[in-house]
Amino acid sequence: MTIASYVFLIIGGLFYLLGGLGVLRMPDTFNRIQAGTKATTLGAFSILIGVALANPVWSWISKIIIIIVFIIISNPIGSSAIAKATYNSKNIPDNLVQDALKERGEE
């Protein structure tokens, strides 16, 4: 049981590291949002499952389920809000090959 929980914890830590690295290395804002959101969502998932395996008591598992559900609902909404605000504040990277939102404005 401890070994399984540590495996999940290590995987979660690795994805957190990848999320931080992605936020640091990606060249423009939208790609940073993508890397950050995906990697930290799965990282949080994995860490929470690892902690639940280390403490298989109902009072822990119920709270962990609440955190997982909340994260999976709120994290994509938050990143979507940042992306929309980024676009609306005229911070558009110049490497886009196609821009459907701009076409919407011209119609």
Binding site: L21, M26, D99
Partner: peptide, 15 residues
């Protein structure tokens, strides 16, 4: 993508 030395990108916004 993050770990490759030159990040492969071809970004765009689609509908």
């Amino acid at each position: 993508r993050v770990l490759s030395p030159k990040i492969p990108l071809n970004p765009g916004i689609v509908k």
